[in-house]
Nucleic acid binder design. Structure first.
Lengths: 130, 130
DNA sequence: TATTGTTATACTCTATAACTATA
DNA sequence: TATAGTTATAGAGTATAACAATA
């Protein structure tokens, strides 16, 4: 099973790189961008939990996204240790574009599956890791 | 989809490490050992193709397996460039033990799935990457 | 000249420890 | 004393180029 999930991941990630090379973001970085986009004011620690990333590694991803002016970080008055994350206008624009590419990618990678089968595949995978 | 396959892979590999730490082999190294075990006289280039590994990286894996006295390498008379791989007696023994652990691991990781669903999951994944 | 496999090496990804600032 | 996040760094995994030996 691990063999099959890994082979599928490699294939999908390879195609992801080919189709999104103009954005210079890898799949995990895209996930971070997407989660921030759909959960404004999310914190780094929440992202670490949700994506199984270690804090030091997430910090580097956030620095990269920040250097590309895709996200903004600010410290809330309620807790000056914490950081809230949200997308910049550029970030929102890029995310929207990327989501179109990625959703087409997903459909193409599953070209041998019906919509129902793809949905089922997702559910079975989630039952494995959750 | 890539997100879900990756999360599942991470979970499975993590459990793999916990249950097989005594053998000091990672999942890919186990796959190499297993493929050699079930395909005597397979060549490194065949393994590279089958497992999507690059030759220099497979070489390192084979050196590790060889240092552990799990495999034997020999050059056939028919082509002195090529290498044939097979398991040593120790290798056969270790593989047999590992396969018991791994097949139990597989069943446990899919505890929320019926046998039929697990079988289906495999087939859907293979349709993605093949 | 092409193929098989190896060596050396660089790059990316992931993991650990120590640190700053705030609570 | 504990928590959020950062920095520095080490280690594992993956990639590219150059090479030796054989076909």
């Amino acid at each position: 099973m691990g063999y099959n999930t890994r082979r599928a991941t490699l294939k999908i990630f390879d195609e992801f790189h080919q189709r999104t090379s103009a954005y210079a973001l890898n799949p995990v970085e895209f996930s971070v961008l997407s989660l921030i986009g759909h959960n404004a004011n999310v914190s780094p620690s929440q992202l670490c939990t949700e994506l199984s990333l270690l804090p030091p590694n997430l910090t580097k991803i956030l620095q990269k996204l920040s250097n590309k002016h895709l996200i903004q970080r600010y410290r809330p008055d309620s807790d000056k240790r914490a950081i809230y994350l949200k997308l910049s206008d550029t970030g929102k624009q890029k995310l929207e574009q990327l989501e179109v590419v990625v959703s087409k990618l997903e459909r193409d990678m599953a070209s041998k599956l019906t919509d129902k089968q793809l949905e089922l595949l997702m559910e079975l995978l989630q039952r494995i890791y959750s």
